[in-house]
Simulated assay, not measured.
Amino acid sequence: MTRVKESIECWIFNRVTQKVLLLHVPISKDSSVPFWQPITGGIEKNESPLKACSREVVEETGLIINEQDLIGWQGAIRINTPTLNIKKSLFLGIINDSEVIISEEHDEYKWVSPKNISSSLYWDSNRETWEKIQTLIQSEYM
Rank of each mutant, 00 (worst) to 15 (best):
L21K: 07
L23Y: 02
H24Y: 09
H24M: 04
V25W: 02
S28N: 08
D30S: 11
D30H: 08
D30E: 10
S31D: 12
S31K: 06
S32P: 08
V33N: 12
V33A: 08
V33I: 14
P34Y: 02
P34K: 06
F35S: 04
W36D: 05
W36V: 00
Q37K: 15
Q37F: 00
P38L: 09
P38I: 09
I39E: 02
I39D: 01
I39Q: 03
T40R: 15
T40P: 00
G41I: 12
G41H: 09
G42N: 14
G42F: 10
G42S: 14
I43E: 03
K45R: 11
E47T: 12
E47W: 06
E47D: 05
P49F: 09
K51R: 07
K51V: 03
A52H: 07
C53S: 14
C53E: 01
C53M: 07
C53D: 01
S54K: 09
R55C: 06
R55I: 06
R55H: 06
E56W: 11
E56A: 12
E59S: 13
E59P: 03
T61M: 03
T61P: 06
G62H: 01
L63I: 12
L63E: 03
L63D: 04
I64F: 10
I65D: 04
I65R: 00
I65L: 13
N66H: 12
N66S: 14
E67Y: 01
E67A: 04
D69Y: 03
L70C: 05
I71D: 04
G72Q: 14
G72R: 11
W73G: 06
W73A: 10
Q74G: 08
Q74K: 10
Q74P: 04
A76L: 05
A76C: 04
R78C: 06
T81F: 03
P82D: 14
P82H: 05
T83G: 08
N85K: 13
I86S: 10
I86F: 05
I86A: 09
K87M: 04
K87T: 12
K88G: 03
S89E: 13
L90Y: 01
L90S: 13
F91V: 09
F91H: 07
L92F: 00
L92M: 05
G93P: 06
G93D: 05
G93W: 00
G93L: 01
I95P: 00
I95M: 01
N96Q: 11
D97N: 08
D97I: 02
S98Y: 11
E99D: 07
E99G: 05
V100S: 04
I101M: 05
I101F: 08
I102E: 00
S103F: 01
S103H: 10
S103K: 10
E104S: 15
E104N: 15
E104Q: 15
H106T: 04
H106Y: 13
D107P: 06
E108C: 05
W111V: 03
S113L: 13
S113W: 04
K115D: 01
N116H: 14
N116L: 15
N116M: 09
I117W: 10
S118Y: 11
S118G: 06
S118C: 07
S118A: 14
S119L: 13
S119Y: 07
S119P: 00
S120I: 10
W123M: 14
W123H: 15
W123E: 08
S125A: 11
E128H: 15
T129V: 08
W130A: 01
W130S: 01
E131L: 15
E131D: 11
E131Y: 09
I133K: 02
Q134F: 13
T135V: 07
L136S: 08
L136M: 14
